[in-house]
């Protein structure tokens, strides 16, 4: 555990130096503050719009950070050859992968906390109120980021950052529309395409499960059982992806 934490600490320290992080945080800020402009055209709904856009910004920019930093995580270590002296230490390779993941989890926690803080202060300054639903929505966004990050780390152990980013982003996009794969028009019945898409439906996590943005913006409560189920759902996918990442890295020639 100590070895994992040492890797995690370093990963965190390294990733906070990544310039991409600050560019993305800047645009997240612009989006959150810009949400007021949309609020003006929806009279009486401005706080709801600001909350909705702020949550969307936290989700989108969080995912972009997870993808850009996550997919280059292991690749960069191989490319810069810093990995050589690390995995030749008396540690398991999975400790390295999990340590990298933990470091990134920490980074995303910090980034989500900053974006949450900025959004909350902005909503309060605009005269709006904050409730538990707002923060619950952010918890589920963070949970989704953990899943996406695990996928990014898996691809980081397998392929180049650019290809990895494209794949993770595609899965992210499809993950918000998995229903499309299942609810195909009847003319697809009996075709190979239907079978392939059905497999994709079961393989790709349904990321819209983590999305309770509309409920949070409108103050509509969500059943605790649903939240618990989503948390378990996310954990199961994340654990499976991390096991795959560890297995992919175990015998990798570096």
């Amino acid at each position: 555990m100590n070895r994992m934490l040492a890797v995690a600490r370093n990963t965190f320290r390294e990733s906070v130096r990544d310039k991409v992080l600050y560019v993305l945080l800047f645009f997240a800020g612009v989006t959150i503050f810009g949400s007021k402009a949309l609020g003006w055209i929806s009279i009486g709904q401005d706080i709801k719009i600001v909350k909705d856009i702020a949550l969307a910004a936290i989700s989108l920019f969080g995912v972009l950070i997870a993808i850009f930093v996550g997919t280059s995580l292991v690749y960069k270590e191989i490319d810069k050859r810093t990995l050589y002296t690390i995995i030749t230490q008396p540690m398991h390779r999975y400790e390295f992968i999990l340590g990298k993941y933990l470091g990134l989890m920490g980074l995303l926690l910090a980034v989500t906390a900053i974006m949450t803080g900025v959004s909350a202060v902005y909503v309060l300054l605009l005269g709006g109120g904050l409730d538990a639903m707002f923060f619950l929505a952010i918890l589920l966004i963070y949970w989704k980021l953990l899943l996406v990050t695990a996928f990014a780390v898996l691809l980081s152990a397998l392929t180049s950052p650019i290809l990895g980013a494209i794949i993770v982003f595609s899965v992210y996009a499809f993950g918000h529309a998995t229903g499309v794969f299942r609810d195909l028009p009847p003319q697809f019945d009996g075709t190979v395409a239907k079978q392939v898409l059905e497999i994709a439906y079961y393989l790709i996590p349904n990321l819209s499960n983590f999305d309770i943005r509309a409920e949070a913006a409108n103050g509509v409560p969500v059943a605790p059982a649903y939240v618990a189920w989503v948390l378990v759902y996310g954990l199961a996918y994340t654990a499976a992806l991390l096991i795959l990442a560890a297995l992919a890295f175990e015998d990798k020639d570096v």
Partner: peptide
Amino acid sequence: RGLIGYLPEQPYFYEY
């Protein structure tokens, strides 16, 4: 691995 100390060719470490 615990019995070996390894120095790679042109070793790289975290720059920061």
